[in-house]
Nucleic acid binder design. Structure first.
Lengths: 192, 192
DNA sequence: CGATACATGTAACCGGTTACATGATTTT
DNA sequence: AAAATCATGTAACCGGTTACATGTATCG
């Protein structure tokens, strides 16, 4: 009886990171402040409330690593429900709207896809490629139609947008080829 | 005595569009719903309050196009202050933080840069290129350092991010070349 | 012992989302 | 006259930002 949860990027990032490795809010802050995940907020005003709300939903649980301390370090780990919710989120199909509104969330989902296995990762990349190709085509047509009305700068800005999606598509196809080769070994090679 | 205003992407988009062509809230909604500006919200709950707040700040002014109507169409246009604030915003230098946190805002600024002239547009693209090259370098180094600790999927997701910035840089350099050629004609060619 | 990093938390604020409400105008 | 579209608006909600508050552990 799992209900579908709409995760904000930050919450999904937190859930995924905690699922990979139990850790404290402060650990998360360090990650967000010093890695390519830096597009997420590392401010306490964002992270601690997010942790509380995930805990309230029963998806993660925080345990003090030192009972005696007055202000113990709270290490969070995923619950069974949390694992299930994460899996459910990662298995969602890639939609047109994901592309336009939440590309960051898409990449986040992919980044955590390791434990679902290569079949899921390949499915995701296939769907992403299809949607991307479709959207690029739409944008190109729109460009043709509106080209005459655009200023030089706005046309260039538009082209930058399309160029970006083309890059994303090339990446997705390359990644797909990479994974397909690995696939012949039967799964991700975790001994590397 | 202009004070520096921090525009949300939506507000900057509205101010810029209204500066290019006076229009109503409904016109803006149509634009956001049907063009590549579609990454902005076209919901009334976002646009009408944003218009009111820009008007309250004295940057735009709405005038009824039909006095007799009980519910007239409100056509907004920029005030002198609004023009100045927009110019000020577009002239800001491109920072590292813009890149990481507000890339959409950067492209928006560029899209409206027509009226400032090519020198400004060229300056913007130069700064952007510098910052991009710098950031890409940083990311590549970070990738080298952390490669071993990443899962296959998260490494790929990371690479997608870098690849995206590389695409942006290629675009910026190409646009720069394009503008530099035009520049020899002394300005944007608006008779095209 | 003072400084710095570790670690968690809260409150006011702001802006976008969602959903609802209202009425005018145009089309069929 | 009904339906669709035009057009503006509001209220509850949610989540991130900013700034502040508090206390612990470690290091020189």
């Amino acid at each position: 009886m799992e209900k579908d949860i709409n995760f904000s990027p930050l919450r999904l990032a937190i859930l995924g990171l905690v699922a990979m490795q139990p850790q404290s809010g402060y650990d998360l802050r360090k990650t967000f402040a010093s890695t390519p995940m830096g597009n997420f907020s590392s401010s306490p005003g964002a992270i601690y409330p997010a942790l509380k709300s995930l805990e309230k939903k029963g998806l993660i649980r925080g345990e003090a690593d030192n009972e005696t301390s007055l202000r113990p370090r709270l290490v969070y780990s995923t619950t069974v429900d949390g694992e299930a919710a994460l899996k459910l989120e990662l298995e969602k199909t890639v939609t047109h709207k994901d592309l336009i509104w939440h590309y960051d969330l898409l990449m986040l989902r992919f980044a955590f896809m390791e434990k679902l296995g290569q079949f899921e990762a390949v499915r995701f990349l296939s769907e992403l490629s299809t949607e991307l190709a479709d959207y690029i085509h739409q944008l190109e047509e729109l460009m043709e139609q509106t080209r005459a009305q655009l200023t030089v700068c706005s046309r260039l800005a538009f082209e930058q947008g399309i160029e970006g999606y083309r890059g994303n598509l090339r990446w997705a196809r390359r990644a797909l080829r990479g994974l397909s080769q690995q696939k012949q070994n039967g799964g991700f090679d975790h001994d590397n």
